Computed example of a mutant assay.
Amino acid sequence: MATRLDRQGVLTRDRPPLLSVVIDEYVLRRRISGPEVMREQLLHLVKLGSALPRVRIQVVPLSAGAYAGLGGPFVIATLPGGEDVVYVEGQLHGQVIDRADYVRQMVEVWESIRGEALSQQQSLDLMAEVAETWT
């Protein structure tokens, strides 16, 4: 856990990276721990998304139905040289892919997912609202 908390420090350094995250509303509502922990986690996300200008958190609402993000989680990272890579994580392993055609396809999937998501402010409001249901 300390390692995860240490990694968050990168978001507050002098030149933080842009972190843009889209999560499914079901994630906000699925009980993983006790209600107080769920509430604290959601309020922490709201705080990060409100206080740090280079952290963007959006939520795909339940009303979206089926959308491209249901294919599973992935990360698109831009390396220092400017090239993008995709990290796909499975239950047993993760894989970094740098093939241009695959990266291009995943960027299109990412844009589709973002198109289904609420705005940043709507997402923060929804997370705060759901956090209050965990009391």
Rank of each mutant, 00 (worst) to 15 (best):
G81N: 00
D98P: 03
R114C: 01
Q121W: 01
G90R: 08
V55K: 04
R30W: 03
G82I: 00
L43G: 00
R104M: 05
Q121D: 14
E36P: 06
V10I: 12
G82M: 05
S123P: 05
L70Y: 11
P17E: 14
E89P: 03
E89S: 06
Y87G: 09
G94K: 04
V27G: 01
T133F: 09
M106W: 03
S50A: 11
T133M: 10
P53F: 13
R30G: 00
Q122P: 09
I57L: 15
Q91D: 00
I57T: 06
G82F: 01
D24H: 02
G49K: 10
A51G: 04
L124M: 14
D125F: 08
V59W: 04
D24T: 02
V96Q: 15
P17C: 13
G90E: 05
H93Q: 07
P61H: 13
R15E: 14
Q95I: 12
V10S: 14
G9M: 12
I97L: 14
F74W: 15
G65I: 02
V107W: 03
E108I: 09
L45N: 08
D98T: 10
W134G: 06
H93C: 11
R13E: 12
G9L: 07
T135M: 05
V96P: 12
R4V: 13
P53N: 10
L18Q: 03
L11G: 13
D98N: 09
Q105M: 14
E111W: 00
V103N: 07
Q121V: 07
M127K: 03
D125E: 14
L62V: 04
D14S: 04
D125V: 13
V103H: 09
R13K: 06
Y87H: 15
Y67C: 01
H44T: 02
Q121C: 03
R39Y: 14
T133I: 06
V109Q: 06
